[in-house]
């Protein structure tokens, strides 16, 4: 069989990417857990584990470059490797956003909790679920699913607006909450950014399958 070992290495590269995706999902979940339970130890663990995500990304990049240098892939093979490299970068950034949330958790741990914290976990669940399905769509070469997930970003934006207005109300009502509320706003902004990164993963899937490098501009699918 021609290029059997090459195909195996491309599959392994994608497996590494999926493993990295799981690490990023776990980072989001634990950062939110730390934020809601105000558990500083968990937050510290998220910060520490982010190094592993960074290492994984470096390793994926190294393997991808090695495949390009030694196998000179073209067409769909090249697009797959390029897309994996892009996704690895996105996952690394998603990890950074989770780490940012963990740092916020530590910074406000000494202050009393604020009620709107319930919307933030909802946002996190949505974003994490989008991430999970975006990686499934990538592996399954499912362009339609990728476009559908891309469209869901608007729901995250709406949740972010909701959090924003609620926290604003707190700050107006009680200026002593400004520090906590502002930091929680940052945390939800990080979640909003995570969803944006997921849309980039969806675009990578479209590029990998169809060779279209443009942003998904006119989603044909209903929301």
């Amino acid at each position: 069989m021609p290029r059997e070992s090459f195909m195996r290495e491309v599959r392994e590269l994608q497996d590494e990417m999926l493993a990295m995706g799981s690490m990023a999902e776990k980072a989001i979940a634990r950062a939110i857990e730390a934020l809601t339970t105000r558990h500083v130890m968990t937050a510290r663990q998220v910060i520490e584990d982010d190094d592993l995500l960074d290492e994984k990304r470096t390793e994926i990049e190294r393997q991808a470059l090695l495949l390009i240098a030694t196998q000179q892939p073209v067409a769909s093979d090249l697009r797959t490797i390029a897309a994996v490299m892009t996704v690895a970068t996105e996952l690394e950034r998603i990890g950074d956003y989770a780490e940012g949330i963990a740092k916020i958790c530590i910074s406000i741990a000494g202050e009393p909790a604020l009620p709107p914290i319930t919307i933030i976990p909802r946002m996190a669940d949505r974003a994490s679920d989008m991430l999970d399905r975006s990686l499934d769509a990538f592996i399954g070469r499912d362009v339609e699913a990728a476009k559908r997930i891309w469209n869901e970003d608007d729901q995250i934006d709406e949740l972010y607006d909701e959090v924003y207005h609620e926290l604003l109300a707190f700050m107006i009502a009680d200026p002593t909450t400004i520090n906590r509320a502002t930091r929680l706003l940052w945390a939800s902004h990080n979640l909003e950014r995570i969803a944006d990164r997921v849309t980039n993963i969806c675009e990578s899937t479209v590029f990998m399958v169809l060779g279209q490098i443009d942003e998904i501009k006119t989603p044909e699918l209903a929301r």
Binding site: A75, R79, L210
Partner: peptide, 18 residues
């Protein structure tokens, strides 16, 4: 042709599948 060929046979040839 080398990034996104239209014909599957082109794709298979340039990616070394036959």
């Amino acid at each position: 042709i080398f990034t996104a060929p239209k014909d599957k046979r082109t794709e298979d040839y340039i990616t070394g599948r036959f």
